[in-house]
Design a protein around this nucleic acid. Sequence first.
DNA 1: CAGCCGGTAAACAATT
DNA 2: AAATTGTTTACCGGCT
Length: 672
Amino acid sequence: MMQESGPETKSNGSAVQNGSSSGSHLLECGSLREARANGEAAVDVAPADLAHAQQQQALQVARQLLLQQQQQVSGIKSPKRNDKQPALQVPVSVAMMTPQVITPQQMQQILQQQVLSPQQLQVLLQQQQALMLQQQQLQEFYKKQQEQLQLQLLQQQHAGKQPKEQQQVAPQQLAFQQQLLQMQQLQQQHLLSLQRQGLLSLPPGQPALPLQPLSQGMIPAELQQLWKEVTSAHPAEETTGSSHGSVDLTTATCVPSAPAKTSLLMNPHASTNGQLSVHTPKRESVPHEEHPHSHPLYGHGVCKWPGCEAVCEDFPSFLKHLNSEHALDDRSTAQCRVQMQVVQQLELQLAKDKERLQAMMTHLHVKSTEPKAAPQPLNLVSSVTLSKSAPEASPQSLPHTPTTPTAPLTPATQGASVITTTSMHTVGPIRRRYSDKYNVPISSADIAQNQEFYKNAEVRPPFTYASLIRQAILESPEKQLTLNEIYNWFTRMFAYFRRNAATWKNAVRHNLSLHKCFVRVENVKGAVWTVDEVEFQKRRPQKISGNPSLIKNMQSSHAYCTPLNAALQASMAENSIPLYTTASLGNPALGGLASAMREELNGAVEHANSTESDSSPGRSPVQAVHPVHVKEEPLDPEEAEGPLSLVTTANHSPEFDQDRDYEDEAVNEDME
DNA sequence: CAGCCGGTAAACAATT
DNA sequence: AAATTGTTTACCGGCT
């Protein structure tokens, strides 16, 4: 225990550790790029706008339908009234309206990307809130629709209805159902194509959309047309040749800025259960009725119904057009459904991002308030590392207890590293290396927090044995420990290591012997192990060099921005929201953060060369900005450790510098 | 695909 | 003699 708070710890100063290789970043970037490539091509319209427009459209359409249905129910006649039946409801409700639950993979992603600046969070938050609103409206509409349908159905059944109607209806329904199925299939195809393109990543275990096996060839021309129209709305992702105007929605409506939804990927699993707790709000929310002229389907004198673009002189004429051309018929309904699906996708994305945001918020803010009740589940991280597929169970025989199921997700913290030497946490320092891949650097605060977390949660720490061993040794007052003491440290600091002793102890011994950085020193009482920082540092470069992927993301001078960008990009990539992609660089807020980070980076680098001024300077800026601990980019873990090495070895070895330089070079190369 | 890394398992020797 | 400590080799999976 004393070790924990031990003063000695100063050793590790600021280590900004980077992890070795970060595959995750790479992936993220890659996907992002792909998304951009596929999506940006055609669009000049901001994706956000698109998304917004589409949502609006969907809502509008839905409202329209709802209104019509209501009228019908209330006795007002309308052309085709019963085109719906229970059978139809199913697909819609099940497949379309259910939001999705976050999958483990998503969680992982979330975990990996937790590095957002407050500004980013804000932006995200705002966006999500906006989307949420729309989503709620949509859901509300949907529920109503369902109710209406049921009502209708009941009426029909009880009334015994006129044969005519039924006759009319039957065929229509059949046709409609068929269309729906086809639509779904199309979407499925779309999904598949997206997957192929790498835009979509489906969780392994998740089945794709629950589609019915329809022959693909059956797609009626009309449906195809429909599909095109609908899809054209989101050109971003669907680069498919069919693209057609793409303009419609976008131009007109809305918001000038933003991102797109490109994402769309219809997430298969979406259909499963998830649910956004959206409570149906009140229908009053429907604004359009009150502001007729602001009809989402009407803008710039043009009907914005997907694929329509009919010119309407004025609003009244537009209304006429709307009622005549886009009445409640099969086509409109199908279009509506498609739109709904589009919206749903957006919702899914929204849900994901919300979750992510939640995690980030929790991580960043709650932290202080909430006693890390459920600290983070790095385990996710670790498990990820171990295996991507297995959702929760850690593949390895590790005893992973699902400890905190509630798991907050703040995981990202995994990484590790910034150590504050002096201060920051009494806890010891750093655990620097996270598991190979996810090397997201962590702030001291994270570490401290994590420490608590690991002490109680049987979660495998995302650090290598070597890192842990080193940590243990460095934390000791004399910087040396016997094997048994190391064991004790492990068990004391990590609940995870209270199990499977044979396994990890063997690993510890193995590591001690294997790595040159661990030096065995004969002692009076036997032998103790010490750390040769120089050696330890030496090993790093290799990894780092292998990190290019990670580095690529960053911009040379903005090394520290990397995490940020990475997170953003990942987020965007996932959501296919270009907005951020481009914006991130230009965004002033981000820029500020970036510069702050850069400073930190520079500081880190400098002190790395110099001596132990370490981390304190570098990190302060960031912290000052916000409690956010941005995980500093790992440029090199070494850096973080640099100071430490000094401490231990006391001298500045050329090798050290070389390593550093080497790394820097590598970084630059990659970046450029 | 090769190479590197880290984790795990295990055999074996030396020491306590 | 048993347990602990160290060393070494092999294999596997992930990543670059």
